Amino acid sequence: MVKVEIVEEKDPQFTNNGSVYASSDSSRTSSSVSLSSVGSNLDGEESFYERVAALADIIPPSTRNKISSGVSKTAGFVKTSGKLVGNLVWILTTSALLVGLPLALSLEDEAKIVAQEKEMLAQQQGAQGMLQPSMYPPPPGQSQQNGVVPPGF
């Protein structure tokens, strides 16, 4: 962080017309002393965030503005597209549950009914095959029985 400090002209470093950059020897030594005093005033407990925030002063304001607008546009796009995708997923899942699930259940019931009908038809054909007379005449000595077969045989 940058600390702004008001320096009065009574300091010994401003002996030549109030300028720190004077060419006299006393100003050179006083400026080096002031640099060492500045170094000792730094806060040793500076956080990482404070250091990164201090780097913002290095980047020019126009570049910071471009970066900021780019990040905000990207964040807006991500937010809008995320909301759109979320709404689309919601529509698809609710439609599948409200339309697809009952349709699938009815198709499954229809398939069960068709399978039962086929099974009953096969049973009827098997029972009729046993009741129909044979194409061949019965052997001599046997009479043909015309009985009714009870269900379940």
Rank of each mutant, 00 (worst) to 15 (best):
S36R: 08
L131C: 10
V33R: 07
V85K: 07
P61Y: 06
P140F: 08
K112P: 01
S106Y: 05
N65L: 12
W90A: 10
L35S: 13
S40G: 06
V33T: 12
Q124L: 15
L88P: 00
Q132A: 14
F77Q: 08
V38L: 11
R51E: 04
I58G: 01
L103M: 09
E50S: 15
P133C: 02
K112T: 08
S27Q: 10
S81I: 02
Q144T: 03
T74D: 10
K73V: 01
P61M: 04
R51F: 07
V114M: 07
V33Q: 09
A54H: 07
T29W: 01
F77C: 02
A53T: 02
A111G: 09
M135I: 05
P60M: 01
G39H: 07
A111Y: 09
P139M: 04
Q124A: 14
N146Y: 11
S143I: 03
V20W: 07
I91Q: 07
T93E: 12
G100L: 03
I58W: 10
A53Y: 03
F77K: 10
P140I: 13
D43N: 15
G76M: 08
T29E: 15
G126C: 05
E108C: 09
Y136L: 15
S24T: 14
R64K: 15
S95C: 07
A104H: 03
L42F: 15
E45H: 09
F77D: 07
G76D: 15
S95E: 03
P133H: 06
Y21V: 05
G141R: 03
G70N: 13
S37V: 07
L42D: 09
N87W: 06
G70S: 12
D25I: 08
T29C: 02
A75R: 13
G141K: 02
S106T: 10
E108D: 14
K79F: 05
P137L: 12
Q116G: 06
S24W: 02
R51A: 05
P137C: 05
I67M: 14
T63S: 09
S72I: 01
G82I: 01
L103D: 05
Q132P: 00
T93H: 03
T93R: 09
D109S: 14
L101E: 11
G76E: 12
D43Y: 03
L101T: 05
F77R: 11
L131G: 01
L131N: 10
